[in-house]
Amino acid sequence: MIAYASRTGTKRNLAALRDAGWRLMVSARGVLRTEGFPYALDNGAWTAFNRGEPFDVPAFEKAVKLLGQGADFIILPDIVMGGVPSFEMSIAWLRKLRRRVALRGTRFLIAVQDGMETIARRITRWLGPKVGIFVGGSTEWKLATMAKWARIAHRRSAVCHVGRVNTARRIRFCEAAGVDSFDGSSASRFAVTLRPLELARRQIDLEGYLTRLAA
Rank of each mutant, 00 (worst) to 15 (best):
A187I: 11
D42M: 05
F73R: 06
T211Q: 15
A15S: 11
F190E: 15
S157I: 03
F37I: 02
P58D: 01
V165R: 00
L194P: 00
F190S: 13
G44C: 04
T34F: 01
D19I: 00
K96L: 14
R104F: 07
F37A: 04
R202S: 10
G83N: 09
G136F: 07
R51G: 13
V31K: 11
R195V: 14
V80G: 05
A150G: 01
K11G: 08
F134R: 01
R201N: 04
G44L: 08
T124P: 02
D42Y: 00
T124C: 11
S138K: 12
A16I: 11
A45V: 09
L24G: 09
G178R: 12
I2F: 10
M116H: 07
V159S: 12
H154M: 07
R7N: 13
A5F: 15
P129K: 00
W141M: 08
A150H: 03
V64W: 01
V165K: 08
R122D: 15
A215H: 12
M1P: 04
E117N: 10
S86R: 11
V112P: 10
A153L: 11
G83M: 09
W46K: 12
A176Y: 06
A158C: 06
E61G: 01
Q69M: 09
T139G: 08
R104I: 00
T145W: 00
A214H: 11
A168E: 07
P38A: 13
S188Q: 05
